[in-house]
């Protein structure tokens, strides 16, 4: 109960803070913390061995996405 509560509160707080942050590149740390909390919540939701694969696939996918967003944003601002 306490562990789920910690994951839920941190994910909700960081999602709200990521949306209301004005600059695009400064949103990415909050998005990363939200991904950590959601990956923890996936494992807590269903303790079954394939769930490890689902959690790691979700986390790697979102990491790749934020890397692509950051590098493309920088390349556009240089022009």
């Amino acid at each position: 109960m306490i562990v789920e509560g910690i994951c839920v509160v941190i994910a909700a707080y960081c999602a709200i803070r990521a949306v209301f942050e004005p600059k695009t590149l400064k949103k990415l740390p909050y998005l990363n913390v939200m991904n950590f909390a959601v990956a923890g919540a996936i494992v807590l939701l269903m303790p079954y061995p394939i769930t490890i694969g689902a959690a790691i696939a979700y986390f790697i996918g979102s990491t790749l996405e934020s890397n692509a967003i950051a590098s493309t944003f920088a390349r556009l601002e240089e022009q």
Partner: peptide
């Protein structure tokens, strides 16, 4: 770019729905 970040937040919710129903392969 902000729209893409918000779509990332939406996808987190969708993956949680899928895992809650047990569709791990779809997730």
């Amino acid at each position: 770019f902000d729209k893409l970040i918000c779509l990332g937040i939406l996808t987190a919710g969708v993956v949680l729905f899928l895992v809650e129903k047990g569709y791990l392969d779809v997730a």
